[in-house]
Amino acid sequence: MNALLEPDSAKPAAAAIDASAPTRRPRRPLAANGTARARQQVSATAMKIVAPLVGAALLVLVWQLITVNNSSFPTPMVTLAEAVKLFSDPFYRNSPNDQGIGWNLLASLQRVGMGFGMAALVGIPLGFVIGRVKFVNNMFGPIISLLKPVSPLAWLPIGLLVFKSANPAAIWSIFICSIWPMIINTAVGVQRVPQDYMNVARVLNLSEWKILTKILLPSALPYILTGVRLSIGTAWLVIVAAEMLTGGVGIGFWLWDEWNNLNVPHIIIAIVSIGLVGLLLEQALMALARAFTYEQVSN
Protein backbone atom coordinates (compact mmCIF):
# COMPACT_ATOMS: atom_id res chain seq x y z
CA MET A 1 0.00 0.00 0.00
CA ASN A 2 2.71 2.44 0.97
CA ALA A 3 4.57 1.66 -2.23
CA LEU A 4 1.48 2.34 -4.28
CA LEU A 5 0.85 5.69 -2.54
CA GLU A 6 4.35 7.00 -3.02
CA PRO A 7 3.91 8.18 -6.61
CA ASP A 8 0.65 10.03 -5.77
CA SER A 9 2.21 11.77 -2.76
CA ALA A 10 5.20 12.76 -4.81
CA LYS A 11 3.11 14.65 -7.36
CA PRO A 12 2.26 17.61 -5.09
CA ALA A 13 5.92 17.92 -4.13
CA ALA A 14 6.92 17.96 -7.77
CA ALA A 15 4.23 20.51 -8.50
CA ALA A 16 5.45 22.66 -5.62
CA ILE A 17 8.98 22.47 -6.97
CA ASP A 18 7.79 23.47 -10.44
CA ALA A 19 5.71 26.31 -9.02
CA SER A 20 8.63 27.66 -7.01
CA ALA A 21 11.02 27.47 -9.93
CA PRO A 22 11.71 30.92 -11.42
CA THR A 23 10.07 31.56 -14.73
CA ARG A 24 12.39 32.88 -17.39
CA ARG A 25 11.19 35.55 -19.70
CA PRO A 26 11.70 34.84 -23.33
CA ARG A 27 14.76 36.59 -24.64
CA ARG A 28 14.20 39.38 -27.09
CA PRO A 29 15.71 38.77 -30.49
CA LEU A 30 19.06 40.37 -31.16
CA ALA A 31 17.54 42.42 -33.94
CA ALA A 32 15.01 43.92 -31.52
CA ASN A 33 17.79 44.80 -29.04
CA GLY A 34 19.79 46.42 -31.82
CA THR A 35 16.78 48.41 -32.97
CA ALA A 36 16.08 49.68 -29.45
CA ARG A 37 19.71 50.65 -28.99
CA ALA A 38 19.73 52.48 -32.32
CA ARG A 39 16.57 54.36 -31.35
CA GLN A 40 18.18 55.45 -28.09
CA GLN A 41 21.26 56.71 -29.92
CA VAL A 42 19.15 58.60 -32.45
CA SER A 43 17.07 60.10 -29.64
CA ALA A 44 20.17 61.22 -27.73
CA THR A 45 21.68 62.73 -30.87
CA ALA A 46 18.41 64.50 -31.68
CA MET A 47 18.29 65.94 -28.18
CA LYS A 48 21.83 67.31 -28.53
CA ILE A 49 20.95 68.96 -31.84
CA VAL A 50 17.33 69.95 -31.36
CA ALA A 51 17.69 71.46 -27.88
CA PRO A 52 20.36 74.04 -28.89
CA LEU A 53 18.37 74.91 -32.02
CA VAL A 54 15.25 75.52 -29.95
CA GLY A 55 17.25 77.72 -27.58
CA ALA A 56 18.70 79.72 -30.49
CA ALA A 57 15.24 80.11 -32.03
CA LEU A 58 13.89 81.37 -28.71
CA LEU A 59 16.72 83.91 -28.47
CA VAL A 60 16.03 85.18 -32.00
CA LEU A 61 12.32 85.42 -31.19
CA VAL A 62 13.00 87.54 -28.08
CA TRP A 63 15.37 89.67 -30.14
CA GLN A 64 12.68 90.22 -32.77
CA LEU A 65 10.12 91.17 -30.13
CA ILE A 66 12.51 93.76 -28.68
CA THR A 67 12.84 95.44 -32.09
CA VAL A 68 9.07 95.85 -32.43
CA ASN A 69 8.93 98.76 -30.00
CA ASN A 70 12.51 99.96 -30.49
CA SER A 71 13.30 101.14 -33.98
CA SER A 72 16.92 101.99 -33.12
CA PHE A 73 17.66 98.35 -32.35
CA PRO A 74 18.46 96.30 -35.50
CA THR A 75 16.40 93.25 -36.36
CA PRO A 76 18.00 89.81 -36.69
CA MET A 77 17.75 89.93 -40.49
CA VAL A 78 19.45 93.34 -40.69
CA THR A 79 22.25 92.12 -38.41
CA LEU A 80 22.64 88.94 -40.46
CA ALA A 81 22.96 90.96 -43.67
CA GLU A 82 25.67 93.12 -42.07
CA ALA A 83 27.47 89.99 -40.82
CA VAL A 84 27.51 88.57 -44.35
CA LYS A 85 29.13 91.79 -45.60
CA LEU A 86 31.71 91.82 -42.80
CA PHE A 87 32.75 88.19 -43.08
CA SER A 88 32.81 88.21 -46.87
CA ASP A 89 36.12 90.11 -46.56
CA PRO A 90 37.27 89.92 -42.92
CA PHE A 91 40.95 90.60 -43.67
CA TYR A 92 40.89 93.84 -45.60
CA ARG A 93 43.33 96.55 -44.53
CA ASN A 94 42.83 100.15 -45.66
CA SER A 95 44.77 101.85 -42.86
CA PRO A 96 46.07 101.06 -39.35
CA ASN A 97 42.70 102.14 -37.92
CA ASP A 98 40.55 100.64 -40.69
CA GLN A 99 40.99 96.86 -40.76
CA GLY A 100 38.67 93.89 -41.09
CA ILE A 101 37.18 92.07 -38.15
CA GLY A 102 39.47 89.11 -38.82
CA TRP A 103 42.61 91.16 -38.18
CA ASN A 104 41.09 92.54 -34.98
CA LEU A 105 40.27 89.05 -33.68
CA LEU A 106 43.77 87.83 -34.53
CA ALA A 107 45.36 90.80 -32.74
CA SER A 108 43.33 90.06 -29.61
CA LEU A 109 44.18 86.36 -29.77
CA GLN A 110 47.86 87.23 -30.12
CA ARG A 111 47.78 89.35 -26.96
CA VAL A 112 45.87 86.64 -25.11
CA GLY A 113 48.37 84.01 -26.26
CA MET A 114 51.35 86.02 -25.06
CA GLY A 115 49.90 86.95 -21.67
CA PHE A 116 48.42 83.52 -21.12
CA GLY A 117 51.64 81.76 -22.14
CA MET A 118 53.74 83.80 -19.72
CA ALA A 119 51.23 83.14 -16.96
CA ALA A 120 51.49 79.40 -17.60
CA LEU A 121 55.31 79.51 -17.58
CA VAL A 122 55.29 81.25 -14.19
CA GLY A 123 52.09 80.00 -12.55
CA ILE A 124 52.33 76.24 -13.07
CA PRO A 125 55.91 75.81 -11.71
CA LEU A 126 55.09 78.15 -8.84
CA GLY A 127 51.99 76.09 -8.07
CA PHE A 128 54.12 72.94 -7.89
CA VAL A 129 56.48 74.60 -5.43
CA ILE A 130 53.62 75.96 -3.30
CA GLY A 131 51.92 72.58 -3.22
CA ARG A 132 55.14 70.69 -2.47
CA VAL A 133 56.82 72.94 0.13
CA LYS A 134 54.73 73.91 3.15
CA PHE A 135 56.91 76.92 4.00
CA VAL A 136 56.42 78.39 0.51
CA ASN A 137 52.69 77.68 0.79
CA ASN A 138 52.48 79.64 4.03
CA MET A 139 54.59 82.42 2.54
CA PHE A 140 52.60 82.93 -0.67
CA GLY A 141 49.14 82.06 0.67
CA PRO A 142 48.36 85.51 2.14
CA ILE A 143 49.77 87.28 -0.92
CA ILE A 144 47.58 85.27 -3.30
CA SER A 145 44.51 85.78 -1.10
CA LEU A 146 45.17 89.53 -1.14
CA LEU A 147 45.81 90.01 -4.87
CA LYS A 148 43.44 87.44 -6.40
CA PRO A 149 40.19 89.41 -5.77
CA VAL A 150 41.60 92.58 -7.41
CA SER A 151 39.89 93.42 -10.69
CA PRO A 152 42.17 92.72 -13.67
CA LEU A 153 41.54 96.19 -15.09
CA ALA A 154 42.87 97.69 -11.89
CA TRP A 155 46.30 96.45 -12.97
CA LEU A 156 46.11 98.25 -16.32
CA PRO A 157 47.33 101.66 -15.03
CA ILE A 158 50.32 99.91 -13.43
CA GLY A 159 51.13 98.36 -16.79
CA LEU A 160 50.83 101.70 -18.57
CA LEU A 161 53.07 103.31 -15.96
CA VAL A 162 55.76 100.63 -16.17
CA PHE A 163 55.76 99.78 -19.90
CA LYS A 164 54.81 103.23 -21.30
CA SER A 165 52.84 101.52 -24.09
CA ALA A 166 49.30 100.18 -24.52
CA ASN A 167 50.14 96.80 -26.06
CA PRO A 168 52.47 95.53 -23.27
CA ALA A 169 50.09 96.96 -20.69
CA ALA A 170 47.22 94.88 -22.11
CA ILE A 171 49.43 91.77 -22.12
CA TRP A 172 50.40 92.52 -18.51
CA SER A 173 46.73 92.67 -17.52
CA ILE A 174 46.11 89.28 -19.11
CA PHE A 175 49.15 87.83 -17.38
CA ILE A 176 48.17 89.02 -13.92
CA CYS A 177 44.56 87.84 -14.22
CA SER A 178 45.47 84.45 -15.72
CA ILE A 179 48.12 83.42 -13.24
CA TRP A 180 45.96 82.97 -10.13
CA PRO A 181 43.78 80.03 -11.30
CA MET A 182 46.88 78.22 -12.54
CA ILE A 183 48.76 78.66 -9.26
CA ILE A 184 45.83 77.65 -7.07
CA ASN A 185 44.68 74.64 -9.06
CA THR A 186 48.21 73.32 -9.55
CA ALA A 187 48.96 73.64 -5.84
CA VAL A 188 45.71 71.88 -4.92
CA GLY A 189 46.45 69.08 -7.38
CA VAL A 190 49.91 68.53 -5.91
CA GLN A 191 48.58 68.55 -2.35
CA ARG A 192 45.93 65.94 -3.22
CA VAL A 193 48.37 63.35 -4.50
CA PRO A 194 47.68 60.14 -2.48
CA GLN A 195 50.08 59.74 0.41
CA ASP A 196 50.61 56.08 -0.54
CA TYR A 197 52.32 57.23 -3.73
CA MET A 198 54.72 59.41 -1.77
CA ASN A 199 55.43 56.60 0.69
CA VAL A 200 56.35 54.28 -2.18
CA ALA A 201 58.63 56.99 -3.58
CA ARG A 202 60.45 57.20 -0.24
CA VAL A 203 60.83 53.43 -0.05
CA LEU A 204 62.27 53.36 -3.57
CA ASN A 205 64.46 56.37 -2.76
CA LEU A 206 63.32 58.24 -5.87
CA SER A 207 64.92 61.56 -6.72
CA GLU A 208 62.89 64.76 -6.64
CA TRP A 209 62.87 64.85 -10.44
CA LYS A 210 61.46 61.31 -10.60
CA ILE A 211 58.80 62.21 -8.04
CA LEU A 212 57.87 65.28 -10.07
CA THR A 213 57.66 63.57 -13.45
CA LYS A 214 56.36 60.13 -12.44
CA ILE A 215 54.03 60.92 -9.53
CA LEU A 216 53.15 64.58 -9.07
CA LEU A 217 52.67 65.63 -12.69
CA PRO A 218 50.40 62.72 -13.78
CA SER A 219 48.29 62.99 -10.63
CA ALA A 220 47.96 66.79 -10.70
CA LEU A 221 47.46 67.10 -14.46
CA PRO A 222 43.62 67.20 -14.35
CA TYR A 223 43.81 70.03 -11.79
CA ILE A 224 46.37 71.87 -13.91
CA LEU A 225 44.19 71.66 -17.00
CA THR A 226 41.20 72.92 -15.01
CA GLY A 227 43.24 75.95 -13.98
CA VAL A 228 44.32 76.49 -17.59
CA ARG A 229 40.70 76.34 -18.75
CA LEU A 230 39.60 78.89 -16.15
CA SER A 231 42.53 81.15 -17.00
CA ILE A 232 41.87 81.25 -20.75
CA GLY A 233 38.26 82.23 -20.15
CA THR A 234 39.28 85.04 -17.83
CA ALA A 235 42.00 86.21 -20.21
CA TRP A 236 39.56 86.46 -23.11
CA LEU A 237 37.18 88.50 -20.95
CA VAL A 238 39.92 90.88 -19.87
CA ILE A 239 41.43 91.57 -23.29
CA VAL A 240 38.16 92.98 -24.64
CA ALA A 241 37.86 95.45 -21.77
CA ALA A 242 41.57 96.32 -21.87
CA GLU A 243 41.46 97.06 -25.59
CA MET A 244 38.48 99.36 -25.08
CA LEU A 245 40.65 101.46 -22.77
CA THR A 246 43.98 101.27 -24.59
CA GLY A 247 42.87 101.44 -28.23
CA GLY A 248 44.79 100.11 -31.22
CA VAL A 249 43.92 97.01 -33.21
CA GLY A 250 41.78 94.44 -31.44
CA ILE A 251 38.21 93.24 -31.16
CA GLY A 252 37.63 95.31 -28.02
CA PHE A 253 38.78 98.53 -29.69
CA TRP A 254 36.80 97.62 -32.83
CA LEU A 255 33.65 97.19 -30.75
CA TRP A 256 34.19 100.54 -29.00
CA ASP A 257 34.90 102.26 -32.30
CA GLU A 258 31.65 100.93 -33.75
CA TRP A 259 29.80 102.27 -30.70
CA ASN A 260 31.30 105.72 -31.33
CA ASN A 261 29.98 105.42 -34.90
CA LEU A 262 26.57 104.27 -33.54
CA ASN A 263 26.76 101.17 -35.72
CA VAL A 264 24.63 98.89 -33.55
CA PRO A 265 24.56 95.88 -35.95
CA HIS A 266 28.36 95.76 -35.87
CA ILE A 267 28.29 95.92 -32.06
CA ILE A 268 26.03 92.87 -31.96
CA ILE A 269 28.25 91.06 -34.48
CA ALA A 270 31.30 91.83 -32.33
CA ILE A 271 29.55 90.47 -29.22
CA VAL A 272 28.60 87.25 -31.00
CA SER A 273 32.13 86.89 -32.44
CA ILE A 274 33.67 87.35 -28.99
CA GLY A 275 31.32 84.72 -27.58
CA LEU A 276 32.06 82.23 -30.36
CA VAL A 277 35.83 82.59 -30.00
CA GLY A 278 35.56 82.19 -26.23
CA LEU A 279 33.37 79.11 -26.70
CA LEU A 280 35.87 77.54 -29.09
CA LEU A 281 38.75 78.17 -26.70
CA GLU A 282 36.75 76.70 -23.81
CA GLN A 283 35.71 73.59 -25.77
CA ALA A 284 39.26 72.98 -27.00
CA LEU A 285 40.67 73.05 -23.48
CA MET A 286 37.82 70.89 -22.15
CA ALA A 287 38.60 68.29 -24.81
CA LEU A 288 42.26 68.44 -23.82
CA ALA A 289 41.33 67.98 -20.16
CA ARG A 290 39.15 64.96 -20.96
CA ALA A 291 41.96 63.41 -22.97
CA PHE A 292 44.40 63.61 -20.03
CA THR A 293 41.97 62.80 -17.21
CA TYR A 294 42.08 59.27 -15.87
CA GLU A 295 39.99 57.31 -13.40
CA GLN A 296 41.46 55.22 -10.65
CA VAL A 297 40.55 51.56 -10.92
CA SER A 298 39.08 50.15 -7.71
CA ASN A 299 40.11 46.67 -6.58
Score class of each variant (00 low, 15 high):
50 V>N: 03
172 W>M: 10
80 L>Y: 12
281 L>V: 02
279 L>H: 07
281 L>F: 07
253 F>I: 03
75 T>W: 01
4 L>I: 14
127 G>P: 04
3 A>C: 03
160 L>A: 09
117 G>F: 09
76 P>D: 02
27 R>L: 12
113 G>F: 07
296 Q>F: 14
2 N>Y: 06
8 D>W: 14
144 I>E: 14
204 L>A: 15
113 G>A: 12
71 S>M: 08
142 P>H: 11
64 Q>W: 12
269 I>M: 06
210 K>F: 00
276 L>R: 04
249 V>F: 06
138 N>S: 11
4 L>K: 10
28 R>K: 09
275 G>Q: 02
45 T>R: 12
38 A>L: 11
69 N>C: 09
246 T>Y: 14
8 D>E: 13
3 A>P: 09
206 L>F: 08
100 G>R: 03
285 L>P: 00
285 L>Q: 02
197 Y>F: 15
13 A>I: 08
34 G>Y: 11
61 L>F: 15
152 P>D: 14
70 N>P: 00
132 R>N: 05
44 A>K: 12
267 I>M: 14
127 G>E: 07
104 N>P: 08
220 A>G: 06
187 A>Y: 10
215 I>M: 04
265 P>T: 10
293 T>L: 00
209 W>G: 13
200 V>C: 05
273 S>W: 01
112 V>A: 03
272 V>N: 00
209 W>F: 14
183 I>H: 04
237 L>I: 13
235 A>T: 06
218 P>M: 01
4 L>G: 11
33 N>F: 13
81 A>E: 13
298 S>L: 15
37 R>V: 14
82 E>F: 08
216 L>H: 07
186 T>G: 09
159 G>K: 04
207 S>P: 03
199 N>C: 12
32 A>V: 08
111 R>H: 06
249 V>T: 13
165 S>K: 11
287 A>V: 01
105 L>V: 15
263 N>Q: 09
51 A>D: 05
136 V>K: 05
237 L>V: 13
77 M>R: 10
1 M>A: 14
